[in-house]
Simulated assay, not measured.
Amino acid sequence: MNDKILGKYIAKNHSGSVFTDNELQVIKQGNIDEMVTTFFDMNNDYYITQLQCAIKSLATFMDTQIVMESIEYIKQYQGQFMGCQIMDGDIDVFLGIAGEDDELVELASVFAGEDFRELDMDAYDALCELINVMNGAYATKLSGSEIEVTLHPPVFYKDTCVTSETGLYVAVFEMNGKSFKLLMAANDKIKLNA
């Protein structure tokens, strides 16, 4: 059920003591687009759409329970390992998947339906494909609003620092006892220092 990805986050972070009728209806329907629009206060609509596409991709292509734990807006992220992809054109977009080796091996294994033992080329390929799926969904949605972007091939970095001019979102997800992070920047310039 799609709403399980966001249910714990919404319950933990809802600002009011009770849900409004509209909020309850959105939760009951379990529509990811509506849940993100209703319960996430993000800088602009580009981020809302980016998060919607990422979560819908996880819900569609991952055959396991994934739970969003937190999301924060920061200027800089430092991580051990990260796979990422940039889109440019009418807007600049960055999407990264970050985590420790064992966390990313688990993510790659679940996505590919294979049991990877290490972060080797097969695991990298699976993570690349997951990034492509999320960004492909986002690019398609942007094109519906007549915003054209070009996807560049995913790249991988070890011990990387990502800095954004205004800020980027880091969403933490839990899956099978491990966590991974999605880094998102939309309509903003980022800089990578490996």
Rank of each mutant, 00 (worst) to 15 (best):
D45N: 15
M62W: 11
K56W: 06
Y124G: 04
T160L: 12
T140C: 07
F111C: 10
G177M: 02
D188S: 06
A185S: 15
K178F: 06
K181P: 06
G30P: 13
D92W: 08
M175Y: 11
V36A: 01
F173I: 02
E146S: 08
Q52W: 02
F111H: 09
E69D: 11
R117T: 15
N22V: 13
D188A: 05
G136V: 11
L51E: 13
A185C: 13
I48C: 08
Q85C: 04
T150C: 04
G136Y: 07
Q65D: 05
I190V: 03
C161W: 02
K12H: 11
F156P: 02
Y73W: 15
G177F: 01
G144R: 07
S109I: 04
M62P: 10
A123N: 06
G96F: 01
G16Y: 12
S179H: 01
Y124T: 05
N135M: 13
E118G: 09
I190T: 00
G177V: 02
H152C: 09
D21C: 14
P153C: 07
L142A: 03
G16R: 13
S57W: 05
L58S: 05
L183P: 04
S70Y: 00
F94E: 03
R117Y: 12
N22F: 12
A54M: 05
D125N: 11
Q85S: 04
G177N: 03
L95W: 01
L151H: 13
G144Q: 09
K75S: 08
D188F: 03
I86F: 07
I97F: 04
Y47K: 05
D3I: 07
L183Q: 11
A139L: 03
G79T: 02
S17L: 10
I10L: 04
L127E: 02
G96Q: 00
M87A: 05
L182M: 12
D3P: 04
K28W: 13
K75T: 05
